[in-house]
C-alpha cells in the first residue's frame, strides 16, 4: 500500500531534454558560421562592450571573445539542462524551456551582431552599436522564448498525488492523547549559520544596514531548520525548537482539518526545494524528502509537514477531528 502512495513526479522524457538543448547547439553553430564569414575582416582587438549611446568602451581579442561566448553558452545551457533533468519544479518545465530559448537566442544574437558590427572596421574604437540592435536582441529573445514555449508542448498538470489512507487512532472517550516529534534539517542549519556569519562579517566590515537582511534571513532559516511538530486536542502546530514553545509559527486548529493522511513527499519534485514552501493549492514545511503528514483543509487546500512517524500523527489528528465533529453535530 505504501508504494501506491509514493508520488510519481510527472515525467519529462528525453525528448524534452533534447528540445531544451537545441537552442544552445543552434546558437553555437550560428556563431561559428558568422565568425567564418567575417573572420578575415575583423580588427584586433574587437569592440565587445558598448555605452548607452552606442560608443565602444570595452575591447578584447577575437580569440578571448569567442572563448568567452562559448563558455557562457555552454555554462548557461548546462545549467538549464540540469534544472530540467532535476525537474525543478516539475510543472514549470515548459517555462524553463522557453526561458532557455530566450536566453540562448538573446545571447547568441548579441554575440553575432557584435562580430558583424566589427566586420570591415580597421580601428575597433570606431565600432558603433545602434540602438535598434539592442531592441532587435530583445525581440529575437522574445520570439525564441515563444517558440520554445510552443515546442515544449502542453503544460504538465500538477498531479496531486493520491491522498493516502486516513486511519483513525483508537481513542476511547475520556482518554487524552498528544503526539510530538522534532525534525531538523542539517543543510538548512548550515545555511542559516553561514548567512548569520556573513551578516556579521558584512556588518563589521561594511555597515550594519546592509548586513541586516543577511542577519534576519539567517535567523529565519535557523529558526525554521529545527522544529517540533505537535498534534493534540487543539490541532497541529509547528514551533521552532530554539524558541519558547509558545511561539508557534504555524497552528492549524482541528476545525480546519477535513482529513489527515501520511505519504512520501518529494521535496524537489513537488515543492521545488526545502523550507517553508507555498505552491498552488498547497503549502507546508518540507525539511527533507520522505514521510510526511498531509492535511486536507476545509478550504480545499493541502498542508504538509515532513516528519517521521507521520502515520501515527495523522491517525491521532483524524480521531480528534472526528471527536470535534461529533460534538458539534450532537
Amino acid at each position: 500500500m505504501k508504494s501506491a502512495l509514493r508520488s510519481a513526479p510527472p515525467s519529462i522524457g528525453p525528448l524534452r531534454t533534447w528540445i531544451a538543448a537545441l537552442p544552445f547547439v543552434a546558437v553555437i553553430a550560428a556563431l561559428a558560421a558568422v565568425y567564418t564569414s567575417v573572420s578575415g575582416r575583423l580588427p584586433e582587438p574587437l569592440a565587445t562592450h558598448f555605452e548607452a549611446d552606442g560608443q565602444a568602451n570595452g575591447f578584447s581579442s577575437t580569440h578571448g571573445f569567442l572563448t568567452g561566448c562559448l563558455v557562457l553558452l555552454l555554462v548557461v545551457g548546462t545549467g538549464f539542462g540540469l534544472l530540467i533533468q532535476l525537474r525543478v519544479p516539475a510543472t514549470g518545465a515548459h517555462w524553463l524551456i522557453a526561458g532557455g530559448y530566450a536566453t540562448a537566442a538573446g545571447f547568441g544574437f548579441a554575440f553575432c551582431l557584435t562580430l558583424l558590427d566589427n566586420a570591415d572596421v580597421t580601428d575597433a574604437s570606431a565600432v558603433r552599436l545602434p540602438l535598434w540592435q539592442v531592441a532587435a536582441v530583445l525581440a529575437v529573445a522574445l520570439v525564441a522564448g515563444a517558440l520554445g514555449r510552443l515546442l515544449a508542448g502542453p503544460a504538465l498538470r500538477p498531479q496531486h498525488p493520491a491522498f493516502g489512507e486516513a486511519p483513525r487512532l483508537d481513542l476511547p472517550a475520556g482518554m487524552s492523547a498528544g503526539w510530538s516529534r522534532t525534525i531538523s534539517s542539517p543543510p538548512l542549519v548550515a545555511l542559516g549559520v553561514v548567512l548569520l556569519g556573513a551578516g556579521l562579517v558584512v556588518g563589521i566590515l561594511i555597515d550594519w544596514l546592509t548586513s541586516a537582511s543577511l542577519l534576519v534571513g539567517g535567523a529565519v532559516v535557523v529558526a525554521v531548520s529545527s522544529v517540533r511538530v505537535t498534534v493534540d486536542r487543539r490541532g497541529l502546530s509547528i514551533a521552532s525548537t530554539l524558541l519558547p514553545y509558545r511561539i508557534r509559527f504555524r497552528h492549524i486548529p482541528l476545525d480546519r482539518v477535513a482529513e489527515a493522511g501520511s505519504r512520501q513527499i518529494a521535496a524537489l519534485a513537488e515543492f521545488g526545494g526545502w523550507g517553508y514552501r507555498v505552491r498552488a493549492g498547497r503549502s507546508g514545511l518540507v525539511l527533507r524528502s520522505g514521510e510526511g503528514i498531509v492535511l486536507r483543509l476545509t478550504n480545499g487546500r493541502e498542508f504538509v509537514v515532513t516528519v517521521d512517524d507521520a502515520a501515527t500523527a495523522a491517525a491521532l489528528l483524524n480521531a480528534y477531528a472526528d471527536r470535534a465533529r461529533s460534538r458539534q453535530g450532537g
Binding site: 487524552s176 498528544g178 510530538s180 522534532t182 487543539r234 525548537t241 514553545y245
Partner: peptide
Amino acid sequence: GSVHAGERLPAARELAASLGV
C-alpha cells in the same frame, strides 16, 4: 526502540498543555 538516546521529549509545560493535564 521507537525513541532513541539523544531524542528530545516535549517540555513538561508543553506536554501538559497538549494533554490538558
